[in-house]
Amino acid sequence: MQISSDIIRGHLEVVILKLITEQDRYGYEIATEIYNRTDEKFSIKEATLYAMVQRLERKELITSYIGTKSKGSKRRYYKITTLGRAYYKEKRREWATLKTLMSRLLEETDERN
């Protein structure tokens, strides 16, 4: 089943931050990771991804530098900042609360039906 992009859209910033928290990554690598980790059920449009990455950079949650990939070609890598890490932790907490609330709400609805 393909995931509706509207549901996941609001959480993409946190997903991107999470991926960059793990290790420094470049734009297309982030898109590929999202696609692979969702078992090819969700692919982020590059326009959306690049807009979000640039916004995160403007908010100083991530920074960029030009690095070298394994085969020697240059890539613009994104790295999490201290501010970004704190923001990510905060969003993770928000997500945990939302997840609990949604499970409770949906489980209750299921029981009534």
């Binding site: 992009s5 509207d6 859209r9 993409l12 590059e46 326009a47 959306t48 807009a51 979000m52």
Partner: peptide, 20 residues
């Protein structure tokens, strides 16, 4: 492939907003 998968300019300007 890169151009085809890019999406629309509105996805860039309003990444949080759905099409509707």
């Amino acid at each position: 492939k890169t151009i085809a998968e890019f999406g629309e300019i509105d996805d860039y300007y309003h990444p949080h907003m759905d099409k509707e």
